[in-house]
């Protein structure tokens, strides 16, 4: 089997997994005891209004027929209408997703930018104070709950030092005085496109705390992974040889050793994207970030089943897609994987 066939087969299974998720989520959301028609019309409804809503939402049809309709709509990227907000779910999710992705990407940049050098240095200074210190940070980052140090960061940088904002994506006043068009939904890009530097720097200021909070977990993960890979590589003969040739240390560590250690770590990096997506749910609540997590929490609490189904599908598509990419990376860099 060649790489192309491997890709196609992975893709096939990924789609299969997504279909399975769609079916299970749809089924579960339809059997939980709740009455979407009553939800649709609000708390003080009359019988006829509920009946009318039931017909409008096609809730009087058998579940398999409804699933068929749902799949047909899904193929057109239509996730139905939210019961609570009466808006198309896909539109709400699209907006929320860009907010989440912006936060996620910045957090991942921090995680990679910090995690890889930290891991390399920890391996080089193995069992010295720097290694121990980085270990404490890494373990803390992985094991402490994000909502806890998110709040600690708020306390420190907003309440005591007063240098960073408490919450939200942009300051209300700034967004009113320096408005910009939301073309991509990524505020960093939108403000730059509009050459609106005041808003741009405000967006950065608002990103710092939530991004650091969100990055803590992947930083820990990547640091530990890179360190253990580096430790292994540094014991290889060719590294000793390189030292014998008196090649500059920095070049040996970051040039020769890291190149070989980074490949397995890449998988961790990619997977940490998926973990971080889940972590974003709590972080978004603390920092009032209008992203997917906040949307999902609201949808679940108010039993808004089309929204719950929508979020689950989008999140699982992201997850499956990342896994798919990881599989491909692994297959490319690790010759032990047979096609």
């Amino acid at each position: 089997m060649n790489f192309l066939r491997y890709t196609v087969s992975r893709l096939f299974w990924s789609i299969f997994v997504i279909l399975g998720v769609v079916f299970v989520v749809f089924l579960v959301s339809n059997v939980i005891p709740s009455d979407p028609a009553a939800l649709w019309v609000g708390p003080k409804a009359t019988h006829s209004a509920i009946q009318a809503a039931r017909e409008k939402l096609k809730l009087d049809r058998p579940i398999l027929v409804r699933f068929g309709h749902f799949l047909k709509d899904l193929l057109r990227f239509d996730l139905g209408t939210s019961i609570r907000t009466h808006r198309p779910v896909i539109e709400d999710i699209r907006k929320a997703l860009t907010a989440t992705f912006e936060l996620l990407l910045v957090a991942e940049c921090i995680a990679i930018g910090l995690g890889i050098p930290l891991g390399v240095l920890a391996a080089v200074k193995r069992n010295r104070w720097f290694d121990n210190l980085s270990r404490i940070f890494a373990v803390a980052g992985v094991s402490l709950p994000s909502f806890w140090y998110g709040m600690i960061l708020q306390l420190l940088f907003f309440k005591w030092l007063g240098v960073l904002p408490l919450s939200d994506r942009i300051d209300t006043f700034v967004s009113l005085i320096y408005p910009f068009e939301e073309k991509t939904g990524f505020y960093l890009i939108d403000t730059l496109l509009a050459r609106n530097y005041v808003a741009f720097f405000d967006v950065i200021k608002h990103l710092i705390l939530p991004a650091i909070t969100l990055a803590a977990y992947p930083v820990g993960l990547i640091t530990r992974q890179v360190r253990s890979m580096m430790v292994e590589v540094l014991q290889e003969n060719y590294i000793r040889t390189a030292f014998a040739y008196a090649i500059p240390e920095r070049k040996i560590y970051f040039g020769y050793a890291l190149k070989n250690a980074i490949a397995p770590a890449m998988v961790t990096v990619a997977l940490s994207f998926a973990y971080t997506l889940v972590g974003a749910f709590l972080v978004e609540l603390i920092f009032n970030w209008p992203g997917l997590g906040r949307y999902a929490a609201n949808a679940i609490l108010s039993m808004d089943y089309p929204a719950v189904v929508g979020v689950t599908i989008v999140a699982s598509v992201c997850y499956v897609f990342i896994n798919f990419v990881v599989d491909l990376i692994q297959a490319k860099i690790d010759p032990r994987i047979r096609f």
């Binding site: 907003f158 919450s167 209300t172 609540l285 603390i286 009032n288 209008p290 609201n298």
Partner: peptide
């Protein structure tokens, strides 16, 4: 006049005291 949607009550408290 701005209506800001902030679902978390603890955050709303911090925002109004500051």
């Amino acid at each position: 006049a701005v209506i800001q949607i902030v679902p978390d009550p603890s955050l709303r408290m911090q925002m109004v005291t500051s």
